[in-house]
Structure formats: structure tokens, C-alpha cells
């Protein structure tokens, strides 16, 4: 059953079309990858899903309901959580307070009676950044801040979690632990949609992958299918059918990973 449906979404900024009739679904309980070269419109899609960007046309459905015109905070309350590619941690608060604020917001008045900081500690433990609890969020390393954003999003108990390049800034061991956490989350009923450039991570944890190029979905399928899809290879490697040279310079990094 699909939890999220993006239907024919178009986003235009002035004359530039960032998302061009994108259509895809996210199955409940899955880990789904959204990949594509830089500038393919992945983050814009996230913004449309969370309500930070109003689409020029098209619809977004969550849990069967049309949420295209729903306010950002209402979508969050219905269970859509996210992290940001460009960090949006609350820099003047401590790491623990970042999570505490999220709990405060999520629980509303009920939270006044929250006993102690058990939940905060637990969430920080879970993403593995408990040692940073007392530090200001603008003084911690990027990878840690990404995990903090994850902990903060989890505090609101989302049913759908959007992660925007969550592994950049993590080392290999951390990335592995992170991948395991994602699978665990999906098992608990928290569906994950992830924009990610680390192909090893994507291929190992995703149940399904959608590939975006120039704002359109050019392929969808299991990791095994995506790996051999000629359209995907073209988008990433930048070869035309006649086998001319690469022209998408930015995607070279991913090319190497994909080729491994």
C-alpha cells in the first residue's frame, strides 16, 4: 500500500523547471531511495512533499488524503518528518535542547507533564550522538548535526521520514550503523524516503529506488533493476546513445561509486 503519492508535480522557478511532471509512490514500511544527478530536483521534491514549496501544478497525497494545499505544520502533525540538506539544526541551542524542543512541539500541552529527560537521552543514544548532548548545535561536526536532525525528526514519531543526503559527513563505520538504523526504523513502521549520493548505502538498504533527472522520474525499481537500467546509466554517466563523452560534470563523483 502506498503511503505517499506524488502525482504529476511541476515546480517552476521563473523560467527554470526544477521538477517536471514527477510522479512516484512510496510504499508503507519501505526504505525508498530518490537518486539523481545534482540539480535533478530531489530537494525541491522534498520541499513540495513537506509543504515548504508550493508546486506549480500536480498533487501530493499522504495516506490517501490530498495534502497539496495543507500547511507545513499540519503535514508534520499528520506524520511527515524530514531532515535538511543544508543543515537547519537550532544553532543556539544545545544538542539535547534541539531534541527537547522537538518533543515540546510534538507533545504540545501534554508534554508539560513529561517525566524527566528519558526520551531525549534515548533518542540521542539511538542515533549515536549522546556524547554531544551538552554542546551547542552550531559547534558540532556536520555528520553529527545530520544525525541530530534525524533524532529531532524522530522525536515527532513520523510515519514518513524524508532524509536529505543524511550520510554526507559520516565515515564508513557510521554510515553502516546509520544504514542499519534505517532498516530498523522501517521495520517499526516508519517509512523512509531518502535522497542520497552514497550508492553503496542506497543499494544496500533501499527496497525501491526512484531516479530523477532534469525534474522527471526516468526509472523506478529495485536496486538490482536500477543498477542495470540503461537510462539511469545514461543520466549518471552522461553518455548519449551514440556514446559521446560525459557532459554532466557534477555527477562524476557518483559515477565512480556506481562503477565500483
Amino acid at each position: 500500500m502506498s503511503l505517499l503519492q506524488v502525482e504529476d508535480v511541476v515546480v517552476q522557478f521563473g523560467g527554470v523547471t526544477a521538477v517536471n511532471h514527477a510522479t512516484f509512490e512510496v510504499v508503507a514500511g519501505s526504505v525508498t531511495g530518490l537518486i539523481g544527478p545534482n540539480g535533478a530536483g530531489k530537494t525541491t521534491c522534498f520541499n513540495v512533499i513537506t509543504g515548504l514549496q508550493r508546486p506549480t501544478s500536480g498533487h501530493v497525497r499522504f495516506d490517501g488524503r490530498d495534502i497539496t494545499r495543507t500547511a507545513v505544520h499540519r503535514r508534520a502533525r499528520r506524520g511527515i518528518g524530514r531532515t535538511f540538506q543544508r543543515l537547519e539544526a537550532f544553532g543556539s541551542l544545545t544538542v539535547a535542547d534541539n531534541v527537547r524542543v522537538a518533543l515540546d512541539i510534538h507533545e504540545g500541552f501534554r508534554g508539560i507533564f513529561r517525566p524527566g529527560d528519558h526520551d531525549v537521552d534515548e533518542l540521542l543514544e539511538r542515533v549515536g550522538i549522546a556524547e554531544y548532548a551538552a554542546e551547542r548545535a552550531d559547534s558540532i561536526p556536520t555528520g553529527t548535526a545530520r544525525l541530530l536532525e534525524l533524532a529531532r525528526a524522530l522525536a515527532c514519531q513520523p510515519r514518513l521520514l524524508l532524509l536529505d543526503e543524511p550520510s554526507s559527513g559520516l565515515d564508513e563505520a557510521e554510515t553502516e550503523a546509520f544504514g542499519a538504523l534505517l532498516v530498523e526504523l522501517a521495520g517499526e513502521g516508519c517509512t523512509v524516503l531518502m535522497v542520497e549520493h552514497d550508492m553503496d548505502l542506497v543499494m544496500s538498504v533501499c527496497d525501491e529506488i526512484h531516479v530523477l533527472d532534469f525534474g522527471s522520474v526516468i526509472a523506478a525499481g529495485t536496486p538490482a533493476e536500477i543498477r542495470v537500467d540503461p537510462k539511469v546509466q545514461r543520466a549518471y554517466l552522461g553518455y548519449s546513445d551514440e556514446g559521446q563523452g560525459a557532459h554532466v560534470a557534477e555527477s562524476l563523483d557518483e559515477t565512480k561509486v556506481l562503477a565500483r
Partner: peptide, 23 residues
């Protein structure tokens, strides 16, 4: 609690919104 939320709002409105706060 309110003070924490206010500081959070000052730091990042987008993050507050996506956590479910009606700014």
C-alpha cells in the same frame, strides 16, 4: 519550554514548521 521554542523559531523557521509548530 516556551523559551526554547522561541529560540528555535528564531534559529530556523523551516525546521520548526516541519516539526509541526504553527509559527
Amino acid at each position: 519550554r516556551l523559551g526554547r521554542i522561541l529560540i528555535a523559531m528564531r534559529d530556523s523557521q523551516a525546521a520548526c514548521g516541519t516539526l509541526g509548530l504553527d509559527l
